[in-house]
Design a protein around this nucleic acid. Structure first.
Length: 663
RNA sequence: GCCGGAGUAGCGUAGUGGUAGCGCAACCCCUUGGUAAGGGGUAGGUCGUGAGUUCGAUUCUCACCUCCGGCACCA
């Protein structure tokens, strides 16, 4: 094709990203343009952007246009590869298992999936077979073709070939519209596109990863389909890197580390989702509680303690029962009355608040408790310490005047920030959780109160400068909130902390204060849990630190390693000295032990290393003679011998500052 | 809760229709060693629980419990 064909009515002018223009006959395709630019590009081209719109390489261009050709080097290519891979997965499955219906199959983060309807379940043994078939299809280099059909023709067609889910999808498209059908060889599917010109362009860097159940259209009332997940990349190296990342993530999994470091355990004898904190894990809990106690004291909080159960009437009054009865443990019948294990602490705290009269002078009143709760979470949703049925929450309720709500909300945000800074937590985002206006039955219907509460939170967030995203349908029934969202190491998103504004409690519980003019005025309630629950927060910290906790959190802060039992006496003296060191910002003195086993020093070092103990204090005859300890970090770094006092100053400083020392 | 997979010693694992091995950990002995695994030995399991099939079940079947991967849910 000539680079400078004459400009006529039968030609189009193509403008390339560098501003260069080329002229082609009308109806030119991306493949032809790429070929005109160069054979390398012709080979590398995947799809193109035509005036910002994704366009198949084989689809004719009828107008002058700005064109950008996408190759594997472009960021967009990953999603395209995954989308094409999903199609090939569907092709492979339908070839191997006739009668299987296709539904949808999008590209997702790191890969793709496809949902199938089939009476027989897929088994893990099927995956290699399907994968092999996919490679066959890719190698077959099947050409892609795009057709545009009227909606009604498509519906009738897919019904006629028994693809009822597809037909249903197309029926959701407004009548009169056209739909695009993509063919790969003689297999075809309804699809928006775009797709590569042939199946070979996908390459071979893909792998099927798991089989799962998934509801049709994401609704549990619908039929359950079978989902096959895969991952796909541009080349084998990227695929290898990804699989390697997964392995690394598995190593950080809090369930694995929790077992290795003996932090917590579960047993069917106690019950699903009911964690047992072991001595090592309890140290972390206590240190977090002590941190909270200190920080909350600075902020004017007071502490209370309240029972773990309450009568049904309390939850009727709070309004929780009608909304959440199905996620509460069944009630206990005590003397003919129903008592519930509490799923949250608000009503108890409201009772404390309303036990006395409150003047405007004492507002805000901040009532705090690390409080144990029980929620009957769906059995399938339980996950290690991240999602449990019994948990202990860093809870507090702030009772304030309307005019104080914003400032109090900001103060809570700043408290969050202090905690997160302290622990160098950066991998989270803040979500302003709003009610879903289409499902108002899930929320208290008082539009003007919602708007007022929302205004306070929005202003508080804007004034304090914290970035946030908004999400509909995530609010509590009693008000909007800011949720702090994190991802577990395996990629599931959880709310780790929360800051909520409640306009309802004051009505439900008659929570008021006496204003300057002697009238009773309603209070606003802020529910906040910056450290979330011990369970989820610790799970997160385990993964965040990969088990290598900073000194202030480490269950064992130092281990003394005598080189031989000739120095056992000295080791004991070192231990006793360290044990007695007072730590200002800690629940106790230093946490230290001695490894007196009959093993060689190298073995003891290895053991301490695997337990991720921050400091190993090697003591031999030289150290004993000089009153020193040879300090080794868990990173492997050897600090050499130093006077015991020098080491004490160092570790005490770290414990008290709660700073993590980069090693 | 739903779909699929799994449960063997404290942990990690092998294995079989004829009641089970291995590694680490534990305990004992030898070794007294200078910065990631010294050597030898001992003990530890009603093979998740219950029922069924069978002459016989850890192995096959069913139910339940628990865990894992998703989905749904998540105040």
């Amino acid at each position: 094709m000539p680079l400078s064909a004459p400009v006529t009515a039968a030609s189009v002018t193509i403008t390339l990203p560098d501003g260069k223009t080329m002229t082609f006959p009308r109806g030119v395709t991306g493949a032809e343009i790429a070929a005109a630019i160069g054979p390398g590009l012709a080979k590398a081209a995947l799809i193109l952007m035509v005036d910002g719109q994704e366009w198949d390489l084989f689809r004719p261009i009828a107008h002058d246009a700005k064109v950008r050709i996408i190759t594997k080097r472009d960021a967009e290519s990953l999603e395209l590869i995954r989308h094409d891979a999903a199609h090939v997965l569907a092709m492979a499955v339908q070839a191997l298992y006739p009668g299987t219906q296709v539904t949808i199959g999008p590209a997702i983060e790191d890969g793709f999936y496809y949902d199938f309807a089939r009476a027989e379940p897929f088994t893990p043994e099927d995956l290699p077979k399907i994968e092999a078939k996919m490679h066959e299809i890719v190698k077959a280099d099947l050409p892609t073709r795009r057709e545009v059909w009227p909606r009604d023709k498509a519906v009738a067609h897919f019904k006629s070939i028994g693809e009822h889910y597809k037909a249903e999808l197309i029926e959701a498209i407004p009548p009169g519209e056209d739909v695009s059908i993509y063919w790969h060889g003689d297999w075809h599917d309804l699809c928006r596109g775009p797709h590569f010109a042939s199946t070979a362009k996908i390459g071979d860097a893909f792998k099927l990863t798991k089989i799962a159940g998934a509801y049709w259209r994401g609704d549990a009332r619908n039929a359950q389909l079978q989902r096959i997940y895969g991952t796909a990349w541009r080349d084998q190296k990227e695929l290898g890197d990804y699989l390697h990342r997964l392995e690394e993530a598995e190593r950080r999994d809090h369930r694995r580390i929790g077992k290795e470091l003996e932090l917590f355990t579960f047993t069917p004898d106690v019950g699903a989702g009911l964690p047992l904190w072991m001595p090592n894990g309890m140290v972390i809990r206590q240190e977090l509680e002590f941190l909270a106690l200190q920080e909350e004291r600075k902020e004017g909080y007071v502490r209370v303690a309240t029972p773990h159960i309450a009568k049904e009437t309390l939850y009727q009054r709070s309004g929780h029962l009608p909304y959440y009865a199905d996620t509460m443990y069944s009630p206990l019948d005590i003397d003919g009355e129903n008592y519930y294990l509490r799923p949250m602490n608000c009503p108890h705290h409201h009772m404390v608040y309303s036990a006395t009269r409150h003047s405007y002078r004492e507002m805000p009143m901040r009532i705090a408790e690390y409080a144990q709760d029980y929620r009957y979470e769906a059995s399938g949703g339980l996950m290690g310490l991240m999602r449990v049925r019994g948990f202990c929450m860093n809870d507090a309720h702030i009772y304030c005047r309307f005019d104080q709500a914003k400032e109090e909300f900001i103060k809570v945000m700043r408290l969050h920030a202090r905690y997160y800074d302290l622990m160098a937590i950066k991998e989270y985002y803040m979500r302003l959780s709003l009610p879903d206006l289409k499902k108002l039955d899930k929320y208290v219907d008082q539009p003007e109160k919602w708007l007022a509460a929302l205004k306070i939170i929005r202003e508080a967030m804007v004034e304090s400068g914290y970035p946030f995203v908004e999400a509909e349908g995530e609010a509590a029934f009693y008000g909007p909130k800011i949720d702090f969202m994190i991802k577990s190491v395996i990629g599931t998103e959880y709310t780790i902390s929360t800051n909520q504004l409640d306009f309802l409690a004051t009505q439900r519980f008659g929570l008021t204060y006496i204003a300057e003019d002697g009238t009773e005025q309603p209070v606003y309630v802020i529910h906040r849990a910056p450290l979330g629950t011990h369970e989820r927060f610790t799970a997160f910290l385990i993964e965040h630190y990969a088990g290598a906790f900073p000194v202030w959190l480490a269950p064992l802060q130092a281990r003394i390693i005598p080189i031989s039992d000739k120095v056992a006496d000295y080791a004991h003296r070192v231990h006793e000295t360290l044990f007695q060191v007072p730590v200002f910002n800690g629940t106790a003195g230093l946490r230290v032990d001695i490894d007196l086993s009959a093993e060689r020093m190298q073995k003891k070092i290895r053991d301490a290393q695997l337990q991720k103990i921050p400091y190993m204090l090697v003591v031999g005859e030289r150290e004993a003679a000089e009153g020193k300890v040879a300090v080794r970090l868990r990173s492997g770094k050897d600090l050499g011998p130093m006077p015991l006092e020098t080491f004490i100053a160092r570790i005490k400083g770290e414990a008290e500052s709660r700073k993590d020392r980069p090693e």
